[in-house]
Amino acid sequence: MNKSTLSFLATGRSGIGHLRRVTTVAHALRRKAKALDLQLITNAAPAGIACDELGVFDRILLRPRAEMAQVVAEASGILVCDTIELPGIERAAGRKVLILRETPADRIASFRIPGGLWDRVLVPNPRAHWMPDGSALSTSVEPTGWIVRTTGVRRASDKPAGIVVATGGGGTEATRNLLYPILDRLLADTRGRIGAPFLIRQAIGPRAGGAQLAGADEVFDPGGDLNLTFRAADLVITTAGYNSVLELATTDTPALLLPIPRSLDDQAARVRLWGPKLGHGYAPKQHDAAVDWLSAQIARPTRRAPIVLGADGAARAAELILDLL
């Protein structure tokens, strides 16, 4: 490794959100500086990211999270860590960048570098949306805007995807045990309300273990093209992960968002903010309102205007990273 090597360190066990974000930033870096040496270090195979997208990295290394920092311990390049607590990061010699996704205030201190500071903290949203008190993390805390791959409105050439339920965010058994009963009740009540058959297609990721909703008629793996499935869908029902919500926002597809509990990710707050913009946000105490919205959307399908997300956050993140070379 040399001073022009950029190492992205991201967890792949909790879903593809971290991998999606660093891959998007890596592509922005490659567009700005083609000669860079880019490597990805992660603790699980980057399933769910398309092979042609992963080609942006010169190499991909799989290591347990406890050993990831050892790989770059003597590196003189730049280390970019995506919202990950990384044992031993303080011993790495390179410049250190933290991408800090929206995080509860009482958890921010867990990302401190023992005895030191990050050279830069990048916040992947507009300043007006969320800015942490990052003074204990770095002297340079910069908002980038949303980091997202823009998808666009449905095209005449798109094969219609129908009604899609995306449960990738429910990859763990504990989360599925909370999420699936809500979804099955929602689908059953909607079927009862409409009184006519409709087809439900469930998109599951590689970490879902093949677990199928009782109310799903079909199951498929969208691979790295979930955003294109979102664009082609008549309607999407999905958990409220950072990437899923933003990728849906750039389409014209109506969506019903459901929160799932996460240790760092306040999906309930995201549903309250984005639900009305994209279609509807599910609230446990307002189940019937979600059935009403879903039934009306299925009976009388409509599209919506894409959300304008502002400046390209990946391009801005790339600029701020390159500034450290």
Rank of each mutant, 00 (worst) to 15 (best):
S157Y: 00
A69V: 03
R20L: 08
P114A: 13
P126Q: 07
E173L: 12
I60A: 02
P206G: 10
A268C: 04
R201A: 14
D288S: 12
I108A: 01
G223W: 08
I16N: 10
R191N: 13
L9E: 04
E218H: 13
D119N: 13
L179N: 05
D184V: 02
A33T: 12
D217F: 04
D265L: 05
A136P: 01
S263I: 10
G210E: 10
A44L: 14
A315C: 01
F220K: 00
S7R: 11
S135V: 11
V308D: 15
G17V: 07
T144S: 12
D234K: 09
V236F: 01
A47S: 12
I60Y: 02
P114Y: 11
R59I: 10
Y180N: 07
P181Q: 11
E90K: 12
D221P: 00
L178S: 09
W130M: 02
R107H: 12
L258W: 02
A315D: 14
A233H: 06
R207S: 06
S76Q: 13
Q286N: 13
T139P: 03
L54H: 07
A314L: 08
V71D: 12
K96E: 12
R95F: 04
V80N: 05
G48D: 04
W130Y: 11
Q212S: 13
A50N: 13
A283G: 02
S110K: 15
I84S: 01
G195F: 13
E218S: 08
D217I: 03
A73G: 00
S157M: 00
R191M: 13
E142H: 13
A44K: 15
I60P: 02
E53G: 00
A314Q: 07
A92V: 14
